[in-house]
Design a protein around this nucleic acid. Sequence first.
DNA 1: TCATTAAATTGTT
DNA 2: AACAATTTAATGA
Length: 228
Amino acid sequence: MNAPSTLPADFLRSSIWAANLGADTLARVESEVLERSVPGGGVVCRKGSPVDYWVGVIEGLVKISSVSAEGKSVTFTGVRAGGWFGEGSVLRTTAWGYDAVALRDCRVALMPRATFHWLLETSIEFNRFLLEQLNERLSLFIGMLESDRLLEPEARVARCLASLFNPHLYPGGGRDLQISQEEIGYLSGVSRQRVNQALHVLGQAGLLRVAYGGVTVLDLPALGAFGS
DNA sequence: TCATTAAATTGTT
DNA sequence: AACAATTTAATGA
């Protein structure tokens, strides 16, 4: 069922930002990027700790969230295989402004801060990619401001899933995603029971197909616009 | 390959 | 939150 595990080098080459890099540039990046495994429930990076790397998800699913002083948790987004996060932190700050937690066993690629900045200074294509990625995330968060307060659980689940199929953030992801209803609950801030109901509503609407341990998106545009 | 068992996930209250 | 039903994964014959 699962694809054979991706080698770090293959993962880097399949990232869109790497598509137009020269061979020697790519070789240097490959030699400097590290790989690390994070068990399910483990912390990829913790709020307040130094930002030493830009992080790519090779395999698994990572939740980006923040916990308030009273212990209330807010999830910003999920990052699935193929996605990179932390560019804002690497660019502007020295400490992470949020937590990144592995929802299941993960393998992540770590690009050292220095490598990131070197790419930033040498590659126009890399800059173009960052501009697009930051823009995609901005519109994602703007949409969340609306959906978080105004929309019912069905729409929140719909948008949460749609965001995981964003072709700019997760290239080559296909239409299928292995994700449990519990994981969707963590990402969308909806109880698992409500996720279960919502998935059936969305399935009835023909927007997606639910399967054991995963979903298949049938109509991505409609999914992202559900409820508005 | 098949049957049995444990674990994970889903569906319902 | 708790429970039963279903699906998958693992194990050994």
